[in-house]
Amino acid sequence: MSSCGAVVGGVSLDRVDIAKEAVIQGVVHHDGKPASIGYVRLHDANDEFTAEVPISSQGEFRFFAAPGNWTLVALVPGATKRAEVSAELGQITDLDLLVA
């Protein structure tokens, strides 16, 4: 039985059929460089928490959402950043989250 747990940086896209997924992924930046410690939370259109992943050592994260509007919340020590994003089936939506 596979875990419900989150893989650091998000699950690899290897062996994933992108046509059946609405992927949201990106990199968290803090102080002008990729953050190495932090988390990204995915909230649905009602701002309800849906999922969370620890970022990779290069600040990377990835979600497999449903099509629609979502909010990303990046957490790093001492700072947070929210960003709106729209996901579509069969597409990979890439974005950078810049945490001041």
Binding site: C4, A6, K20, D44, R62, F64
Partner: peptide, 19 residues
Amino acid sequence: RSPDEYAGRLLAPAHLPQE
């Protein structure tokens, strides 16, 4: 589970592939 899993719009948490 998350509302989308409950309603049947997702089959797994959104940090996992859905198949």
